[in-house]
Amino acid sequence: MFDKVLLPIDVNYEESWKKALPAARRCAGPAGEIHLLGIVHDIGAAMVSSFLPEGFEKLAMESMKERLEEIAKKEFVDAERVKTHVGHGHVPEAILRVADQIGADLIVMASHPPNDLRTLLVGSNADKVVHHAKIPVLTVR
């Protein structure tokens, strides 16, 4: 069993957690903590962000926190074992940064089925986390 399991999810994409969440529960056992992580993507270019309303990223992070809390309440009866976190930036980097900050000893995350063209052009977030993590990573399909 693991003491602190980090479960990065996309709150808008149920497939990012429906199978991974039960795996995280099993890995945490009866005493481990589960840390849900939602990530707000960094807009990046100033030109793009100039078209967004003022305070967009702050509002997006607040909304993410609310959605994570809703999922935690809905999916866990033992809410004291679940903590929610909102990351910001590039997805793999945010996952690794939060894992380090909370002292996670396992990352559980969903991985989309391989698609050579998509992986070549964009790359898989799970692949990047697996290759750069200092702790075990369980990918779930």
Rank of each mutant, 00 (worst) to 15 (best):
E54Y: 08
N12V: 14
P114F: 11
M47T: 15
D105V: 02
G123L: 12
P30V: 08
D10P: 03
S16Q: 03
L120R: 13
V91T: 07
E69C: 10
R26A: 14
H112I: 11
L37K: 02
F2V: 01
T139Q: 05
K73T: 14
G29D: 13
T119M: 12
R81E: 04
E15F: 06
H35W: 02
L36W: 00
A24L: 05
L117I: 15
E69T: 13
A46V: 10
F2W: 07
K128R: 14
K134N: 10
V11C: 13
A99V: 00
V77W: 03
P8C: 06
A72D: 05
T84C: 15
E66G: 04
V108M: 00
P114G: 09
G55S: 06
A23L: 01
T139A: 07
P8K: 01
A20R: 01
R118C: 10
P92N: 08
E93Q: 14
R97V: 07
R67A: 06
L117N: 04
I95A: 01
E33H: 09
R26I: 12
S124L: 04
E57Q: 06
I34K: 00
L138E: 01
R141E: 11
D10L: 05
A72P: 05
L36G: 02
H85S: 09
I43H: 04
A46E: 10
K73Y: 08
Q101L: 08
G89L: 03
S124F: 05
P53T: 08
H41I: 07
G29T: 04
R67D: 15
K128M: 15
D3Y: 05
I43K: 01
H131F: 06
V137G: 00
S49E: 15
L68K: 01
V91Y: 07
I95W: 00
G87A: 08
V11Q: 14
R25V: 12
H88I: 09
D127P: 00
